[in-house]
Design a binder for these strands. Structure first.
Ligand SMILES: [Mn+2]
Ligand SMILES: [Mn+2]
Ligand SMILES: [Mn+2]
Ligand SMILES: [Mn+2]
Lengths: 229, 229
DNA sequence: TATTTTTGTTAGTCTAATCTAACTTAATAT
DNA sequence: ATATTAAGTTAGATTAGACTAACAAAAATA
């Protein structure tokens, strides 16, 4: 009688499971809680499916699940989610810095490559990039232990007329928004001076580079993170 | 009454389907035929599963299927298979040439990346590599239409004492074999002179580079493809 | 507080992709 | 030619991951 023994202790998660973990991580509020409904909307997956996946992830010790209570990632779940985000952001950085893609082109590709199982591949990207701390959209890249250091930026929309700030990150990373920023020559690292703020609709008139008077809607200013200089 | 219409005509194949297509392509003989049994062994998937997948691929017009007859890819199936192989080999080339991996490290990674859906990614690899015709193991990279040009190499084992040949490709691309070649400083493009062939076991004594007398087993010589010079 | 709306769960269905057991057809050996 | 073995198929089970319909709990509103 031969008994087959599974020697692969570190069973990896499926693509679907990884996408749930990542979505939970990024939707978590300060309490680390997520609602079934929010997850359902984010993933475009119906609520009953989310519930059943949460039960599965709970048996894998990745999620704390109790009926009708908000969902929480366990420490293990948080770490695994952060490591997927690490792969996502390293990939985006690699695509931009080493392959010449625009920052508006890389998210969709990274959404797939983040699921590749190859520590060597991502270690090599990291090395070739010189161990970057931020991705092309200014978001922090978690380290190998899944630790993510958040820098406390301000929204441009919360700054006042007369302030001079440095563009440091974007909140929305949709291709449309990034293409809009490209069209205005707005990129990370840029110094921007706020000339005036329209009190009625919070539209801002700003100057930067060769552009001495550009008007940015509140919607845009809310999605730009800056540092005071 | 609103009717939902599927506008995505070019439904992509699943990862499983792609792996079957690729395996069929590479197992096909000169007649373009494969047996269920061979496919089953190659993919490490039981025969009934293979049969049912063949029926699915037949409904998708990728495979000609008739009970108890050998399997054949349709022209469409051949093209799709070749385009996956194109992605695989472009990836291997990129990993070796642009990221500094060894030729023995890249197959496993390419096995995953070949399934990424992003024409832009592979077009960029192709461009950065200067539109290569061969992968790091000397195998031809199919073009964008799925056309693959085979060069007729000889096996080193079929050459005679006194011949001088150029190492052009490897048949076996297992990491073990490639590491063995590394250990003997054998790489593609190398000029090798055959000093003698042992009649008993077909072992060859060869010289190349700074190595004036290396002994290669028949097993090794059978897996090395060469051009006469 | 009572009603309505929103959120979440349960139960049951479906497809993809795998398996085993049993059977059939084809190939090989005696 | 017959018996045996190998190859291939059918039938039925299983799991992951999705869905809808119906119901239950919680939150919001009147
Ligand atoms: Mn992204
Ligand atoms: Mn993803
Ligand atoms: Mn390969
Ligand atoms: Mn593959």
């Amino acid at each position: 009688m031969i008994t087959k023994i599974n020697v692969y202790f570190c069973r990896v998660n499926s693509l679907a499971e990884e996408n749930y973990l990542k979505a939970m991580f990024s939707l978590s509020n300060d309490k680390g809680e997520v609602n079934v409904n929010d997850l359902s909307k984010r993933l475009e997956i119906k609520m009953p499916t989310v519930t059943s996946m949460m039960k599965r992830l709970a048996t894998k010790k990745l999620v704390h699940y109790e009926s009708y209570k908000p969902l929480k990632l366990t420490d293990k779940g948080k770490k695994e989610a952060a490591l997927i985000i690490r792969k996502h952001r390293l990939t985006e950085m690699f695509l931009v810095e080493k392959m010449g893609f625009g920052w508006e082109q890389v998210h969709e590709i990274a959404e797939q490559i983040e699921h590749i199982q190859s520590p060597e591949l991502f270690a090599k990207m990291d090395e070739l990039l010189g161990f970057p701390k931020l991705d092309p959209h200014g978001s922090p890249i978690p380290d190998k232990n899944g630790t993510m250091v958040w820098v406390a930026y301000n929204k441009l929309s919360e700054c006042k007329a007369g302030d001079t700030v440095k563009l440091s990150a974007v909140i929305n990373t949709s291709a449309e928004f990034l293409k809009f920023l490209n069209s205005r020559e707005l990129s990370l690292g840029l110094k921007v001076k706020i000339k005036s703020v329209e009190p009625f609709d919070n539209t801002m008139v700003v100057s930067y580079g060769k552009r001495l008077s550009e008007t940015l809607s509140h919607t845009v200013c809310e999605r730009l993170l800056v540092e005071k200089v």
